[in-house]
Computed example of a mutant assay.
Amino acid sequence: MNKAIQKHPDYKKYVIDSKLQYFKPHASKIEKTFAEEISSSLNRESKFIVPKFFYDKKGSDLFEKICTLPEYYPTRTEIAILKKLKTELPSFIDDSFRLVELGSGASVKTRLLLDIFTQMQQTTEYFPIDISEILAESSEQLLQDYDNLRITGIIDTYEGGLEFLKNYDDKNNLILFLGSSFGNFSPTDGKIFLEKINSTMKSGDLFLIGLDLVKDSQILESAYNDKQGITAEFNLNVLSRINDELDADFNLDNFSHYSIYNKEDQRIEMYLKSLVNQSVVISKSGLLLNLEKNELIHTEHSHKFTLDQIKTLFTSTGFKINHTWLDEKTNFSLTLVSKN
């Protein structure tokens, strides 16, 4: 038996075929965690919902739509930077590396890295970690397009997937954390998360992370308040998920999407605003939620960084910066680091 399964009995293994397998925590474990976290985060004066819960199937599909919006610059900017890596990344890796990705989603940007790996290797192993069921769907599509690809996925949180990876085998990993998802962490939690990644990495492993940079506030606010209202739908969908999975009675018509840029703290702040005085029952969390008109439920922070802050962030969490790639407008960065 694989030692990862021995050490993680909460996971069930699904073998699709010789090229695709994935591991998933038992459903009771996921539901319990979701219910407990929602109960804890909404049962306090400053209410919040952790952003990882955005990404059920519908939420993941909505986020893919957000990535194509004209106002949402991060995706197309990061893709432009990733295209530079085709000639530059091979100087940092060799054919012994596996590609690991945190928050793989629909794997659109992943293909730019897989193109590099499959050119270098007879067989490429891809290890996506994602909380959403979209992982299995996108993996099957990738296998249709890459003949020499083998996929082992983890449908779990980043932390759960990293622990699984730590105990999996001794192969070198290039770990990807693309998009600007790291900005969702508070500064303290972000440092803890980077230290967690560092602790799972072997001396030969590499970590490639996308970080959104500080820029004009109008550009930032437009990116999170698109004219089509897709971001608003994405934000409100988390309430639909709570209704469906935790037997709640949120009326989405009683809430609106609210997003602003906090210049002092260098972050976009996203909320759900209660439009009326209301009470909501969340049965599986055992919670009666009372909300006043204009009360806010925080759903996401998206921190932005300067290049100096990025350097300090990695040196303080045990990393050495190997290279940083930027776009022409210096809106976004990709940084490759290793254990110091």
Rank of each mutant, 00 (worst) to 15 (best):
N2P: 15
I5G: 07
I5F: 15
L20P: 00
Y22M: 03
Y22T: 02
K24N: 08
I30C: 02
K32S: 13
A35C: 13
E37I: 13
E37M: 13
S39R: 15
R44S: 14
E45H: 08
F48E: 11
I49C: 01
F54S: 00
K58G: 00
D61V: 06
K65W: 00
I66G: 00
C67N: 10
Y72K: 05
Y73K: 06
P74G: 03
E78M: 06
E78R: 10
I79P: 05
L82R: 06
K83F: 04
K83W: 05
K84F: 07
L85C: 02
R98Y: 13
S107Y: 12
T110K: 01
L112V: 12
D115T: 05
I116F: 01
T118S: 14
T118A: 05
M120D: 01
T124P: 05
E125N: 15
Y126T: 03
E133S: 13
I134Y: 09
I134F: 10
L135T: 11
A136K: 13
E137M: 09
S138I: 07
E140D: 04
E140H: 10
Q141N: 12
L142H: 08
L143W: 01
D145P: 03
N148R: 11
T152E: 09
E163R: 14
L165G: 04
K166R: 14
N167C: 11
N167P: 06
N172C: 11
I175D: 01
I175S: 00
G179W: 12
S181G: 12
F182D: 06
G183Q: 08
S186V: 02
P187W: 10
I192N: 14
F193T: 02
L194I: 02
I197Y: 02
N198L: 04
T200L: 01
D205A: 01
L208Y: 02
V214P: 01
K215F: 07
D216T: 06
S217Y: 11
A223C: 02
A223W: 03
Q228E: 15
G229M: 08
T231R: 03
V238K: 00
L239V: 00
S240C: 12
D244S: 15
D247K: 15
D253N: 12
N254G: 04
E269A: 10
L275R: 13
L275T: 10
N277E: 14
V280A: 02
S283N: 15
K284Q: 14
S285R: 08
S285G: 12
G286N: 11
G286V: 04
G286A: 03
L289E: 04
N290H: 15
L291H: 04
N294E: 14
T299M: 07
E300N: 03
S302V: 08
F305H: 13
T306D: 03
L307A: 13
D308C: 05
K311H: 11
G318Y: 12
K320Q: 13
N322K: 15
H323W: 08
T324P: 08
L326H: 11
S333I: 06
V337N: 00
